[in-house]
């Protein structure tokens, strides 16, 4: 299990398009991928769940990856957050 703390840097937060990018990226990996915000942990491969987090700019998300490619999955998904989902 790998834990990575990411911060939401894009202005609009995780709305539909960023959520879609997270899920698409997550689907590329065999590992299980979860996102945790506050006390809510959701499946990173489910679009509605990711949207439901409604995570705003500045909030922190704990990225949990577990499986054969947990390292690379964590790096790839954290990269999306760092790139502000190509939004700002």
């Amino acid at each position: 299990m790998k834990k990575t703390l990411v911060t939401i840097e894009n202005k609009l937060g995780i709305h539909a398009r960023p959520a879609s990018q997270i899920v698409q990226k997550a689907m590329e990996f065999d590992s299980e991928i979860f996102l945790q915000k506050d006390d809510i942990k959701i499946n990173g491969k489910s679009i509605l769940s990711v949207m439901m987090l409604a995570a705003e700019q500045g909030s922190e998300i704990l990225l949990l990856t577990e499986g054969p490619d947990e390292e690379s999955a964590a790096i790839a998904i954290a990269e999306l957050f760092r790139n502000k989902f190509n939004e700002d």
Partner: peptide, 11 residues
């Protein structure tokens, strides 16, 4: 939500 104490929609 921005600026408020963090809480998730479910809460």
């Amino acid at each position: 939500q921005t600026g408020h104490a963090p809480s998730s929609p479910i809460n």
